[in-house]
Design a protein around this nucleic acid. Structure first.
Lengths: 354, 354
DNA sequence: GGTCGAGACTAACTCGCGTTAGTAACGCGC
DNA sequence: GCGCGTTACTAACGCGAGTTAGTCTCGACC
């Protein structure tokens, strides 16, 4: 597993401080600080400014972060707390995109991102804020009984929730899960399907799962179709749960179309259909949710609700930065989704369904 | 997109400091520091210790991170620098797992993880280290001409490379790409394939891509098969590149099996095959690389080289923590891979190939 | 030529914690 | 009663920046 050759430690030269820069430029530390931070309210003659800048460049001076954070009373860091199990995080194929957007927004606001993946049984994250390692937190996937979160919110810490918690007075960001799901099911209805199943993306304690299911029910209600609990199965993040979920649906008399509230779960569901010798979309249509990067390339390319993961991360970051700055912020931000029709949906085999 | 109701700012109470704890416990700040940090070399009578601990608990005291970092001269933070484009990161479906492993190892060593996604044209990351915001860095996907990296290594900063850079004296972590690829191709050979194509996971400037291609060539050479450049196509991280790549291969007279050096690219390649009316594995076998979480559930379930993403992140984190602590560390750590045989590979249609 | 004021800069304090050097109190033996 | 160690603590400095309250210089104006 390893090669024997080793890399040993080298002594690092001491990093230059603002005092070094001041000495080299022949000014005081205060002046250096004024120049480095470009303070508009202090007048520094161009000649002096140049001297300081040259000295800083020559020494390759970088202000000491922790010292600056201590003096300024701000860590310029935002924390991303992922309150999910390892398996759940692993199945989140939109996370890379989300993280990218979040980091971009943070950087634009002068912040960096600290990630704190913390399985539900894994301990607490309040310390991040209370110890001032982070100025604010984005909490993704908190449970309803997360008292820690409630306490932090009560104490007025800047927090943005990724998802939703109805009971807390805290800004949240999410896509419009309900409207998105509704759109997907409406698409199935328009194709002529009447008997439409649903596999959720997660257990219904997860608000996103409950919302998507609500969207499904909305669409059925509007179309005048009675809700049949026998057509609803709970998925659990990963493809395997879609596989067994679909098997369950097929046992209850197969629907002509299924709304699967997650692409990953849908991929498992499709496998379940094929196990039963059914073709997609000829025999059963599948509409999904998330539009993960490979959704357009699996077989068949998925008709799915596009989730703008990058934009979501960006919005969350932007919101948190605003909140930290003390700017008022909308209580709930819902990003729109868009149905992408590909090849996993079609008109039912026998027009009118069965 | 948003609801009008807004969340306003609340005044936060001042966080308690060690002086507050000292006052409440009736001791000096120094004693508090000794108790909090559990210094073994100082004797504190149990009674005093209890008083301090009770006071800390009562005030919900958390030491101020930046102050601590300043005094200790360590930020207790490691940075994960992702030197890839947004698209490339988005297509990395093992990233969530990797991140989880990395964070776990970091936490075990008392560190936290700061992520810095930085597209190649996006600026520098040296400041992270020079400003002491991070004590060490894991650099993933650096380019060969990354002078910044060379400078940091020269200055003796603790750095671990995710991947490989032959020219730098810096510890690196990776899976054994070459052996893994070789194993996959050997599996195809054992099935009886002789005309085996290859679609790389990325352009060959990326060392992982070059290594996997080497593994492919190794296997052919050992089997006594001449290398045919016409059977090799470059992929580029995403499924779309696999799609067009396969189309190219088919134009050059189709192989009976293809080693696609990435699951995501393979999913596109499979689509390319089906566009041409070919079945997998009946007409063409596909062996891939990465074993992303859905690899077992796509159609057909992929025969692929398992990449232990979580373990990889964990190893990288562990190595960096050791390096920061000044412990000697192996120059190159290669994690083993394992071929997972599923349903995308089979014996060639006409025994002996064509 | 003295005074006033603006301009250019700096001494000294602050942030919260770790740590070193040192002191006060106590017990104990002679 | 004195000396000598322990034991149990604390005063004070340092980390590297930001910031406040001044000081000093120089020119213009009366």
């Amino acid at each position: 597993m390893t090669v024997s050759e080793e890399v040993r430690v080298r002594e690092r030269p001491r990093q230059p401080t603002s005092a070094d820069v001041a000495a080299l430029a022949g000014v005081s530390r205060t002046t250096v600080s004024f120049v480095i931070n470009g303070r508009a309210d202090v007048q520094i003659p161009p000649k002096t400014r140049r001297r300081v800048e040259d000295a800083a460049r020559e020494l390759d001076y970088h202000p000491h972060g922790p010292a600056r954070q201590l003096a300024a009373g701000a860590s310029l860091t935002i924390g991303l707390v992922m309150r999910q199990s390892a398996e759940q995080v692993a199945a989140d194929m939109n996370l890379p995109n989300y993280l990218w957007g979040l980091a971009a927004a943070a950087r634009a606001g002068g912040y960096r991102v600290l990630v704190e993946p913390l399985a539900p049984e894994d301990g607490t994250y309040a310390g991040l804020l209370r110890s001032r390692r982070a100025d604010g937190l984005i909490v993704s996937g908190p449970r309803d009984d997360d008292d820690e979160l409630a306490a932090l919110v009560r104490d007025g810490f800047p927090i943005v929730i990724q998802g939703w918690r109805a009971d807390l007075d805290v800004p949240s960001v999410d896509v419009d899960n309900r409207a998105g799901a509704r759109g997907a099911v409406e698409h199935l209805l328009e194709l002529g399907h009447r008997r439409i199943g649903c596999i959720t993306n997660a257990p219904l304690q997860y608000t996103a799962a409950a919302e998507r299911l609500s969207g499904y029910r909305d669409a059925l209600t509007t179309a005048g179709i009675d809700f049949d609990p026998g057509l609803v199965v709970e998925g659990a993040f990963d493809a395997a749960s879609g596989h067994v979920g679909m098997a369950g649906l097929l046992r209850n008399g197969g629907p002509s179309a299924v709304f699967v509230a997650s692409d990953v779960v849908a991929i498992g569901a499709i496998r379940g259909l094929r196990d039963a010798g059914l073709r997609i979309p000829a025999d059963v249509s599948i509409a999904a949710f998330d539009d993960i990067p490979i959704a357009a390339h699996v077989d068949p390319p998925l008709t799915t609700v596009h989730l703008p993961a990058g934009a979501l991360g960006e919005a969350a970051g932007q919101l948190l930065v605003d909140r930290i700055a003390g700017r008022p912020v909308p209580a709930r931000t819902l990003l729109p989704t868009e149905l992408i029709v590909r090849d996993s949906t079609a008109v039912p085999r026998k027009s009118g369904g069965r």
